[in-house]
Write a protein that binds this DNA or RNA. Structure first.
Length: 510
RNA sequence: GAGCCCGUAGCUCAGGGGUAGAGCAUCUGCCUUUUAAGCAGAGGGCCGUUGGUUCAAUUCCAACCGGGCUCACCA
């Protein structure tokens, strides 16, 4: 039975499969009939594509290699063929010749783009100059049953890689990230950089003696940020639990417990809207260091991030969107009220709520009635100032109403010792001199509970156990949170959080 | 949640009230250093889903599903 006949009989059994997928199943059956296991258990790969290319010498010596990877293109020319296979490092061309492979060459006709093979052979340079592997043997390692998107590319005269018809459907790319990663090299690079970034930060913190810890994701009480939580249920205890919106209160409990420096790379969950910079599940680094304050933390963050810049990108400055951003320290430090005065012309310091309201109105900022002065100030800041701050900038000294976990400013009444780092018009870090006065903390929680009672769902919840911990005594402490996804966006010049998260949240397919 | 835009072959995209189009991919034939391989031929479509208007809808209209962008939310 030839392939075409087989195709028509198979058709009735696989009504849902399209022609391309049917072909591949027929080929799979052919392989099995020829006693070839299309899904063997291992392969002795000893070499990687780019190493092979780099190590090649045009001195006539014959160097044997064994590589493995996915077939990305095939050019058949009768009794000889070229294909490119792609491994973790990149692509390398393979030359297969009937004279060398005999029967196995016929078998190669059953292989497709997407199949994974192992190749043994010697390295040579083709007439047109590409370092390639002349196959002596090859082995099927996994037959692919679905057609990949075909992305064609060539190297133009300037040596640039030109890509034709890139796989670009965002829905498919996000839902089937595995495909995106195979065919879009730049996507791979983004995620490799993300990992390098985490490695750099972790190395920096470890080398400073801080302890990486893990704290609960399922919490019976959520806190440490303003956000609505995801709620779930524990059957055995018959209680509702919340997915954490932050790990702040647990990390500070560990400072109470006597650790001088703790940090956690945390997945946090916030039940809010989604957009270019928000995914319901996102990554946050939180760090707490005993006996330090927010001044110390500013120096520390500058060093941490500029070090990561060099580790990840080799430089401290690069283009993000339209702007060249310089991460080298020092960064500007501007008190929040000064920044607002600079960008709006209004001095908000010491103003009562009524005055703030009228200024907001003049600035065309809409604020809910009874929002509270903290909210008004924050609205004005985030509407009119934040978008203007492109270079890394510390905004320091926030109104106390907005910061129930931060310590009162040592000299400026009504403010707390808090900073945010704004880069490219977006908040990147948030840090305080941590509030360790248990009585003050109780009052602040009570203020929050009043807001809650008024219907503010995102006001923080009074956490009696956290207060108990503070009552035992927490040393002066500096704390920091860094949005890892946003930092990755800056480091890889991506403008959507979905492009730095492997599997961003999507609506279910069906 | 609102507004705008999109959904056509495996992928990237044209089209448009009357038999559905291209390139790549696939298949057949030729081709033993090609590389966006080439040459000749072929197959492949519930035109997102469901309704409506119409003699006739993939095309126009509505709703729904999914996606994108912008805004709101993210004190």
């Amino acid at each position: 039975m030839d392939v075409n006949q087989q195709l028509s009989t198979e058709q009735s059994h696989h009504e849902e499969l399209n022609e391309l997928m049917l072909r591949r199943r027929v080929e799979l059956d052919e392989l099995v009939k020829k006693n070839i296991d299309p899904y063997p258990y291992n392969y002795n790969r000893t070499d990687y594509s780019q190493e092979v290319i780099l190590n090649f010498k045009d001195d006539g010596s014959q160097h044997n290699v064994s590589v493995a990877g996915r077939i990305m293109s095939i050019r058949r020319m009768g009794k000889a063929s070229f294909c490119h296979i792609q491994d973790t490092e990149g692509k390398i061309q393979v030359y297969l010749k009937h004279d060398d492979l005999g029967e196995a060459y016929e078998l190669f006709k059953l292989l497709d783009i997407g199949d994974i093979i192992g190749v043994e052979g010697f390295v040579f340079r083709t007439k047109l100059g590409e370092v390639s592997i002349h196959a002596r043997r090859y082995e099927v390692l996994a037959k692919s049953l679905r057609p990949f998107p075909i992305v064609k590319e060539k190297i133009d005269e300037q040596g640039n890689r030109v890509v034709y018809d890139p796989f670009s459907d965002k829905e498919l790319r996000y839902r089937q990230r595995y495909v995106d990663l195979v065919v879009n090299e730049k996507v791979r690079d983004v995620f490799i950089k993300r990992t390098r970034l985490l490695q750099s930060i972790r190395g920096f913190l470890d080398s400073h003696g801080y302890l990486e810890v893990e704290t609960p994701i399922l919490q019976s009480m959520y806190g440490g940020a303003f956000a609505r939580p995801f709620v779930t249920h524990h059957n055995a205890l018959d209680v509702d639990l919340f997915l954490r919106i932050a790990d702040e209160l647990y990390l500070k409990r560990l400072i109470v417990g006597g650790f001088d420096g703790v940090y956690e790379f945390a997945k946090d969950f916030r039940n809010e809207g989604m957009d270019r910079s928000h995914n319901p599940e996102f990554s946050m680094l939180e760090l707490y260091v005993a006996y330090k304050d927010y001044f110390w933390m500013m120096d520390f963050v500058e060093e941490l991030i500029s070090t990561a810049a060099v580790d990840v990108n080799g430089v401290t400055s690069w283009k993000v969107g339209e702007h060249e951003i310089e991460f080298r320290s020092p960064w500007k430090r501007i008190p929040m009220f000064d920044a607002i005065r600079e960008y709006t012309g209004y001095d908000l310091s010491g103003k009562e709520e009524a005055e703030l309201l009228s200024i907001a109105k003049k600035l065309h900022i809409e604020v809910e009635p009874n929002a509270g002065s903290g909210v008004i100030i924050d609205e004005i800041f985030s509407e009119l100032v934040e978008p203007e701050l492109i270079q890394p900038t510390f905004i320091i000294d926030y109104p106390i109403e907005m910061s129930p976990l931060a310590k009162k400013h040592r000299s400026k009444p009504g403010l707390v010792e808090r900073f945010e780092v704004i880069v490219n018009g977006q908040e990147l870090c948030n840090a305080f001199s941590e509030l360790n006065d248990p009585l003050d903390q109780r009052q602040r929680f009570e203020e929050q509970m009043k807001l809650r009672a008024k219907g503010n769902e995102e006001a923080q919840v009074l956490d009696e156990d956290y207060l108990r911990a503070l009552e035992y005594g927490m040393p002066p402490t500096a704390g920091l949170g860094i949005g890892i996804d946003r930092l990755t966006m800056l480091f890889t010049n991506q403008d959507s959080i979905r492009d730095v998260i492997f599997f961003p949240q999507m609506k279910p397919e069906h």
